[in-house]
């Protein structure tokens, strides 16, 4: 199976991943190769097999509803690219 450059562009957009124009072709080639590798999975019939999401069959542990976190804004925002008045700033969001 092979991926077209348009498909690569579409996926890159979904992943919000900037890719240089000259690299798209090589990504398409690499990804197509990986898809061929994956296609091997099709050789095995897996009907009726339960998909396995976790290595262990365990259930979720629950946390007591208690407030344990204090205000750490100053510390967290010290590493932020752009903040003002306690807010993270981004280019204007248009709805």
């Amino acid at each position: 199976m092979s991926l077209t450059t348009d498909e690569v562009k579409k996926i890159a957009h979904l992943a919000r991943l900037g890719i240089d124009k000259q690299d798209i072709e090589s990504y398409a080639k690499d990804l197509s190769g990986i898809l061929d590798l994956m296609a091997r999975m099709g050789e095995l019939n897996t009907d009726g097999i339960e998909p396995m999401a976790h290595p262990m069959d365990q259930v979720q542990r629950l946390r007591a509803d208690v407030v344990t976190e204090q205000d750490n804004r100053e510390k967290f925002q010290a590493i932020a690219p752009q903040v003002e008045a306690g807010l993270y700033l981004v280019p204007k969001v248009i709805e």
Partner: peptide, 11 residues
Amino acid sequence: HEDFHGLTGID
């Protein structure tokens, strides 16, 4: 969306 020099603030 108040104006932060044309930017949006996130809380």
